[in-house]
Design a protein around this nucleic acid. Structure first.
Lengths: 113, 113
DNA sequence: CTACAATGCATTGGTTTCTTATGTATCTTT
DNA sequence: AAAGATACATAAGAAACCAATGCATTGTAG
């Protein structure tokens, strides 16, 4: 099962922040592969979605970047800033809370009216 | 806590289908109120989001409608069609599966590389 | 050794989906 | 009588993602 793209909308930023929290620093392509691997191909982040998101996180001061070369090939490493770490906790908590609410909603069996 | 709107993106259709499955038939305004009530105000569906969604479900043949009058005030009741019932199961299962995956992703503590 | 796949960055145009605002009308409460 | 709640709906715009494309380097299969 590959999740319909609409489901992933709204969670991408949180996923990226969480991965950065766990891995200290990562580059873009690595993030797409890690997510694909961790979710057994169920979530496939496209580059057209990821790069704008990373750039936005940088603009917002949530991540810092370091450009490094592996031979001639450039890699842009992203790391959480202190604000980014706080934001990550916020977003993860919010998502966890949201999932509990949704779980409740989806389990409702009888109406009250 | 009121969830940031981006979180709700992509789940609205599933929420509506699930409510209709549980309640047999409902009208639009009732759906907004029921969701608000069930989620203790955490999820507030705006009418600008709900009505287009309901119309789309109808176009897709997932719901049928009956216009009824309570005095002079019209209410448009929505009910799941047989296809709508199948679709509801699909969407609910997909969302449940997605939430499990997200839960796993958010709990990851160490990197593999 | 050469073509193809994978790695790695990025942008652009378009679509979907939601938000905000507005509009109309009825019913209820103060 | 006014204000708020009920009940429908649409329109303009923004946000976020997708699909496609582009460029360049590195690894691999034939």
């Amino acid at each position: 099962m590959i999740y319909s793209s609409e489901l992933i909308k709204g969670t991408l930023k949180t996923i990226v922040l969480k991965l950065l929290e766990d891995n200290n620093r990562m580059y873009g392509y690595e993030i797409t592969q890690r997510v694909k691997e961790l979710t057994l191909d169920r979530i496939q982040i496209t580059e057209g979605a990821l790069y704008p998101t990373l750039h936005l996180l940088e603009e917002d001061g949530l991540v810092t970047t370091e450009l490094e070369y592996n031979g001639k090939r450039a890699r842009k490493y992203y790391s959480l800033s202190p604000e980014g770490k706080n934001k990550t906790r916020e977003k993860v908590n919010e998502l966890a809370d949201f999932m509990n609410t949704m779980k409740f909603l989806l389990d409702i069996k009888t109406q009250s009216a």
